[in-house]
Design a protein around this nucleic acid. Structure first.
Lengths: 330, 330
DNA sequence: TTGTAAGCGTTATCAC
DNA sequence: GTGATAACGCTTACAA
């Protein structure tokens, strides 16, 4: 394992100064074609490549973006991560993936990200408390962005799917299908308000409905807890008040609810009860579920964050219109 | 956005030299308790934290590990990523997630990782050609590890689930259940040999079976392609030769196959045909599938890679025993 | 225990 | 167009 060649090594070998070497590797630098070729050849021989670490120290730019994720149980995270990493890489940036949990909390993660001088931090669907972002120690850190959830925090833009619009589209579909006894199953309490889906759902039925919306919540956004929450819903609700439509805050919850309704209740979907989810995870298309759901415009959302990170657009919250995906469950 | 305080700023404020400041932040450095307190207080006031970038440049250690992933379609990736990031973070390391695809290949990724001086690179289930790693430009890069697939490359340890053992356990279970007409559905051709599941499966039935194993392969490891491949299998195979057991190379393929068998063929599982997968993805437990599968010991595998990265154990290939998960499909 | 000098490999800026 | 000087913020000697 020989030591890596530095610009100085190349300079010596090419018979120029190290600054000329740098110029050869700086697009648009003023350098004679002759010496450029000479340097490139010497660099090739020595297998030289610029040390990005040193460059970062000098330029104060790491080209790294931290992505904070706290919910690896949600399968929706994976396709978005794919898009995120890919779009970052297309712009010459790299994603540092940080796992947030009870032992490694947001503040710690942000501090760490700060020490590592990342160019930006993306909070991806994480259950952070707004107060946390006001932590004094965070002053002067990298610019923050919130992806796929709301943010009321000044100076922290939230890039979201337009939730009110999405829920309205969904509800209009449900209404036209004739459903009139709606129920809503939300995920973790702390997060659900941040997503705003439940309140938009209630708002619609307050206007269009006759009976109040049944409101239940699961312990988390997982299928397992969706299953449990559905069990709870149907156990505590008198049969004559059972809903004819169960809107779940995300697909994972919907999968669990469907499993319970089919296997334990032996009800048919959608004739006995309709189900809808949110996110259009890959599995929702499978015949085993064939779930009516809503697709967030992940592509545009990620692209928007990138434009802000790269300074091509002003840093401000934005909501994008998604797409209703009608399948057989509702 | 005021500039971050440096060790020198703190030194000035505390009335000591910057080296004393460094010492206050270096565990086990020899420093007088009095000045340590003084420095820490000044640091607190100035909201100082060491610049890890500068440290990395000086120590040649970034505490960053690159993780190369090329298949974000496989839901199994998410729980393993969670484990990876978490275990890395527990040891003070951070994961740089790199998306490999036709536009951003392994060589490019490794070069990039090399320029960024990551401490190690993990090829996580990616399909690469071994020759690729012999690219001259890769000389002197970070140590490589291969996770969850085989590697015959010198100096590149592969950390895997013990496949022959796993398949044997599964087959013995199938055999004891009375299945005698096995079929195997593999994923992408290039990868399947690397996983070695198909060959282990064939080997078992060569000894214990009477009819040859039906062998089919899907275009990728996704449910969609599993669905297509199942369709193909049952269309080209004469009905009297249909298998009574279909072992799929991973869960995603199995989900697709189950969907096809149930929805198009209207066959019952497992009475008409038994199905098994591999990976024990979260969804395989759902009542909609309730898939018999095999769980890789991800925890131990990740821990093993970490031990090697941290130099606590020699760098060498290792295979760990997983766990058969019997459910209702086989 | 503390301060000093040199070095990590770049970039920014100025003189020639 | 090229070379030199200083700087980025830290670590690792070594000397006081």
């Amino acid at each position: 394992m020989t030591k890596r060649a530095t610009a100085e090594d190349v300079a010596r070998s090419a018979g120029v100064s190290k600054w000329t070497v740098i110029r050869a590797f700086t697009p648009g630098a003023s350098i004679a074609e002759k010496s450029r070729v000479k340097v490139l050849k010497a660099a090739e021989n020595l297998n030289y490549r610029p040390n990005l670490l040193a460059r970062s120290l000098a330029t104060n730019l790491t080209h790294q973006v931290a992505i904070l994720v706290d919910d690896f149980k949600n399968p929706h995270k994976l396709p978005v991560l794919e898009m995120l990493t890919w779009q970052l890489q297309s712009e010459g940036l790299l994603a540092v993936l940080i796992n947030i949990n009870e032992h490694f909390d947001h503040v710690q993660a942000l501090l760490d990200a700060g020490q590592r001088q990342v160019d930006a931090v993306i909070l991806f669907g994480t259950a952070f408390r707004p107060e946390m972002l006001e932590d004094d120690r965070l002053r002067g850190g990298a610019p923050l962005y919130v992806l796929a959830r709301e943010s009321q925090i000044v100076d922290v833009p939230a890039i979201t799917c337009d939730t009110p619009l999405a829920i309205q589209e969904m509800c209009e579909h449900f209404y036209s299908k004739g459903y009139r006894r709606p129920a809503f199953l939300s995920g973790a309490k702390t997060l659900s308000t941040a997503l705003g889906r439940q309140s938009a759902f209630s708002a619609f039925w307050k206007v269009h409905g006759s009976v109040p919306v049944l409101d239940f919540s699961a312990a988390s956004y997982s299928s397992e807890h969706g299953f449990e929450a559905a069990r709870h819903l149907f156990q505590v609700t008198p049969r004559e008040q059972w809903p004819d439509l169960l809107m779940c805050e995300n697909d994972a919850l919907a999968f669990g609810a469907i499993d319970y309704i089919r296997s334990a209740l032996k009800l048919r979907i959608p004739s006995d009860i309709a189900i809808a989810g949110f996110d259009n995870t890959p599995l929702s298309a499978s015949p085993a579920y064939d779930l009516t759901t809503y697709e967030q415009p992940a592509n545009e959302m990620v692209a928007a964050i990138l434009s802000m990170i790269l300074g091509r657009e002003p840093r401000e919250s934005k909501a994008f219109r998604g797409k209703l995906v009608v399948r057989s469950t509702a």
